[in-house]
């Protein structure tokens, strides 16, 4: 790849600009490092991967609104976790996490447990865990 051919494509979906280093050949045939802002096929693939994730947590939101699943379930999906990862962060058994994902157990969570989940999701306040908007 020539230095001038290093892709410099932008994506509309991601606002934060981020450039990576690429290696390319200059006029004399020597390799050197060049900054690249993105490559279109990759940007599209990345966008689609995010759309797939968004689809998943929109489904989770509907389940919460229909009183099938709890807010813990929604935030688990929103943070792209599964029961195994969440149980790792909280230190609870997977069975407890699975139970906490059910709507009927939503109000049984203690403050300490909620704080533990807050830590796992990386939020600042417990209210953020309760919020599913």
């Amino acid at each position: 790849m020539k230095v001038n051919d290093v892709p410099q494509d932008h994506s509309d979906k991601f606002k934060k600009e981020f450039s990576v280093l690429e290696f390319a050949v200059d006029e004399k045939g020597k390799y050197k490092a060049v900054k690249s802002t993105g490559f279109e096929p990759k940007n599209v693939a990345l966008e689609q991967a995010w759309e797939f994730e968004e689809e998943k947590f929109e489904k989770a939101r509907v389940l919460c609104q229909n009183k099938k699943k709890s807010f813990i379930y929604f935030h688990m999906k929103k943070n792209m976790m599964n029961i195994k990862i969440l149980s790792g962060y909280t230190g609870y058994s997977w069975f407890k996490v699975w139970k906490d994902c059910l709507y009927k157990n939503e109000n049984k969570l203690t403050e300490k447990e909620l704080d533990n989940y807050r830590y796992a999701f990386g939020y600042k306040t417990v209210d953020e865990v309760r919020n599913i908007d």
Partner: peptide
């Protein structure tokens, strides 16, 4: 399609290389 997208993402993403690694 998602599988193909994954190949390209893995191929071009910073941590995983692919074409970039061939140039390196």
């Amino acid at each position: 399609e998602r599988f193909l997208g994954q190949i390209v993402r893995m191929q071009e993403e910073i941590g995983t290389g692919g074409a970039g690694f061939r140039f390196l």
